[in-house]
Simulated assay, not measured.
Amino acid sequence: MTTASTSFPAGLPHLVASLRHHRGLIRQLVRQEIVGRYRGSFMGLAWSLLTPILMLLIYTFVFSVVFGARWGGLPQGGKAAFAVVLFAGMAVFNVFADVVVRAPTLVVANANYVKRVVFPLEVLPVVQMGNALFHFGVSLLAWLVAAWLVLGGVPWTAWLLPLVLGPLVLGTLGLAWLLASLGVFVRDLAQTVGLLVTALLFLTPIFYPLEAIPPEYRAWFGLNPLAHVVEQARALLIAGEVPGAGELALAWVVGVLAMWLGFAWFQKTRKGFADVL
């Protein structure tokens, strides 16, 4: 049983060792999370592909048909090309959103694990990230087919996508550990985070290019890390452009630092979880 005097190591070496030691448990929980999400539904895992496609069609209709939005610089024009660009940005954003939205309730929803010292609570955000990456992979497969049909191919730089996605994964995990801890003590956090993620969806250049923002506001949008990730991912997937080495190196440093700070906070505060739950 966890006591007030229980101490949990918060260093990066411990994190790496814990994830390595519990990799079998993580795989099992990720599999259960994915299967359980669609258990009992008629379409089953097909919803993991149909849901983003249906949302994509809705967003494409609203922004390209109703509002008349256009995306310059594409090899081919039209609403189909707009949909391909939009889908790429949405798929990357959802890696962040799927984890962060559920993070505040992770520990609360698994309260039965809290008093079991042998259960590694730190793997819960990692399981959510595994679930998010699975759905990202499904969306990416659909995007590749659409890009070949609409744009006529995919540049070789698409293979470099993990270089851009990696810092996002690390930083999101750090934020998830922070929110999972705070969600135990502040129960309204889940609703607040949901609203903020929805706001970020429209404040991130997903439905429009960064160049479409008036110059006087562009610097403020640049403070959003997701804006850089989405722009870099689209550059790799569509434009065939590789971000600068310095920019990528900085992103990885920030991602690792954010991951460590979030994990350290989680480890330092988890000894109080049992008292609240």
Score class of each variant (00 low, 15 high):
L200T: 03
L236Q: 07
A239Y: 08
Y208S: 04
L223Q: 14
V184Q: 13
I213L: 09
A190D: 09
L226Y: 06
V193Q: 03
V184D: 12
G222R: 11
R218W: 06
V230H: 00
E211V: 07
W220C: 07
P215G: 06
G244I: 03
Q191I: 01
F207D: 04
G244T: 09
L210T: 09
E216A: 13
I206W: 00
E247H: 07
L196N: 05
L223A: 14
A199P: 04
V242D: 04
F202T: 03
L226I: 02
W220D: 06
G194W: 04
G183P: 06
V230E: 03
P215A: 12
D188M: 08
E241A: 10
D188Y: 15
Y217T: 05
Q232N: 14
E231D: 13
E231K: 02
N224S: 05
F202E: 11
G240L: 04
G246N: 09
D188Q: 07
G194H: 04
L236E: 00
A190S: 15
E241S: 06
A235G: 14
P215E: 13
V184N: 13
T198K: 00
P215Q: 12
P214Q: 10
V229H: 02
A245K: 01
L189E: 06
V197M: 10
Y217Q: 11
N224D: 10
P205V: 00
T198V: 01
L189Y: 14
